[in-house]
Write a protein that binds this DNA or RNA. Structure first.
Lengths: 358, 358
DNA sequence: CTGTTAGCGCGTTCAT
DNA sequence: ATGAACGCGCTAACAG
């Protein structure tokens, strides 16, 4: 019903005794523009405040050919990592005073065309593509066809630029240097290579061990095939066998005739599951076995024991992604469409790792 | 950039040799309107198809004072249940051909005003409020002030109408009748009353047992205080002690001097965690103890053993919620703002429950 | 520094 | 059954 009519720019103009154009200028004043006298501006601002003016998005968008909104889309926002990333994006957007809408697609089947439906295509000035998405490449194709700026964030190995990512190999080197310096030579791997980034971690893991001449029995490799999604959470798995897998695998690992002295978990969630599973069997971390996680999710700091992990700089990722996208939106001509921002992870040594002999 | 100009209604008009008004009529033709000759309509439709016309959302919204989009918002879309609900809402919306945008707020602190920011207030013709939300009541206040239609879906006991919910007491009766008919008299409760709906389940649980004269030792009550969110997932917990809590509590329960013969879990996730935790100790379900879950998440059907659970009819919830909201949007005068649609859960007996003596 | 004017693309009278 | 003309609220171009 909306019976109270909205306040328009014309109402403000009348109240302040100026023209609509002046009001518009006051509202849209950029940093450098000082073309309005302080006195007029104040009168206008006072009127805006007093009458409670709010800009009409549609008139604005119709005229300005932009909405001022950017869309952050992800397939399924579950999971420790994605959830944190989403938070960080929102926080950063708030800080930079950009409007952002966090939209989940949830769809495995829906076509890319529907996902960036006409609606959303017009709605957003640009897209942040978060994590892996079912129709990623088709979406990119659509976005390019529409000339819509986008930035892929943590989109895995097959992501197309412009993108923001972390140096997974560097992260793996950090983790494995730490373990080998501690004296570990029997290191197991746990993670599902089908998840974003994990494939790279697995590959780097194998290469590292090979290069160092450290043997890697296949029984040490807990790669879990095609899990559905939400890796870190131990949830949303489609098959029963995938439930609490981390705990189970850790237990099996330690019941091997020649068990590892360290377990590298491709995800913090798995690391915590593993520690939990081991504690049930009375196996102590790090005394009996070292465990290292990956991602640097806040919770690892408070876990028992606190988990040694490779921290992905999600705050930087969020900041860079937004910066890049704004650049693409604001100056599409000079901006580099092939930009690849690769950020450095860092190792956080806590209490879940120790020398193998102590 | 956007160098290719979008095709406008005027382009279609020209191509079809008609006026823009006619094109507009063809596009917006309501069911009852048969004011266009078939021949003209076909010419117009052909042109629309050929030129690939897509309506400009902003011109439309500016003129029609509506967008045709409804917003489904939730605080944190994690968790088996919310994730399923979101899917179901999207599916139903697709079926009814309504545009819907799934938006996550993620914010614990953000003000309600910001959450329904000016932007979103204009963007959506109506809101679906999914699950519990941090600033629920402030949001409702805002929405009412804006005269924005909304429907609360699964918003817990404090939700305001119009709302769609399930009959929690009925569900509890179903579960507990089943257990008592099987011959159980030692029944434990597991769940965090701070989550949506769980408070009601807890209350109904206690009342039921009291009415039947079944004793309820406090050691049987695993109520877990203020967990963060994402109950069913075993994830996103803020405190380490909350990780995999279901498994731990089930184990403790069975190590009591006088252990229960059945465990009611307020959530399927907990039920599965419990079964898992028990299996680690060699305690068999349902042989040694019965476990019943709640929500009827698909995965329970494939768990080992398949879990007896109370199924929340999320498909009906989604359908009713959308129906109700559309009613509110389309005929705000006749629609009942105090509508409370309460749906019936149903019991699904599977393999996790049995007689206590077998 | 400020006002006037002309559309952005569409739905909708009022004509015919 | 169809077309011409107007205006939704706003910003940009051009005056002054």
């Amino acid at each position: 019903m909306t019976d109270k009519k909205r306040v328009r720019i014309a109402d403000i103009a009348e109240a302040a005794g100026v023209s609509t154009a002046t009001v518009s200028r006051v509202i849209n004043e950029k940093d450098g523009d000082i073309r309005i006298s302080d006195e007029t501006r104040n009168r206008v601002l006072e009127a805006i405040d007093r009458l409670g003016y709010e800009r009409n998005l549609f008139s604005f968008a119709l005229r300005a050919e932009k909405t001022g909104i950017i869309g952050a889309v992800n397939r399924n926002p579950s999971g420790l990592f994605m959830s944190n990333l989403a938070h960080e994006i929102l926080r950063e957007a708030h800080e930079r005073d950009v409007e952002i809408l966090m939209a989940a697609t949830y769809s495995e089947e829906t076509s890319a065309k529907a996902q960036i439906s006409m609606l959303q295509g017009q709605l957003f000035d640009g897209f942040l593509l978060l994590g892996d998405m079912p129709n990623y490449h088709k979406m990119i194709e659509q976005l390019r066809k529409l000339d819509k700026p986008y930035v892929s964030v943590f989109g895995g190995t097959s992501a197309l630029p412009p993108l923001v990512h972390v140096d997974e190999r560097k992260g793996m080197k950090l983790a494995l240097d730490h373990l080998t310096e501690l004296g570990h030579h029997k290191i197991a791997f746990m993670g599902s290579p089908s998840w974003v980034g994990i494939g790279e971690r697995l590959e780097a893991f194998e290469k590292y061990l090979h290069r160092k001449g450290i043997p890697l029995p296949s029984s040490y490799m807990c790669t879990m095939g095609d899990l559905a999604y939400a890796p870190e959470s131990g949830q949303s798995f489609t098959k029963p066998s995938e439930h609490l897998l981390g705990a189970k695998h850790a237990q099996e690992l330690m019941q091997l005739p020649d068990p590892p002295t360290a377990i590298f978990c491709a995800t913090d969630g798995f690391a915590m599951q593993a520690i939990y599973g081991l504690s049930m069997l009375g196996i102590s971390v790090p005394h009996d076995v070292s465990v290292v996680g990956y991602d640097g999710v806040p919770m690892t700091a408070y876990y028992n024991p606190p988990v040694t992990t490779v921290q992905t700089p999600i705050d930087q990722i969020a900041a860079e992604a937004i910066r890049l996208l704004l650049e693409l939106i604001d100056s599409p001509d000079t901006a580099n469409m092939n930009n690849r921002v690769i950020l450095e992870p860092k190792l956080i040594v806590r209490k879940s790792t120790a020398r193998p002999d102590c």
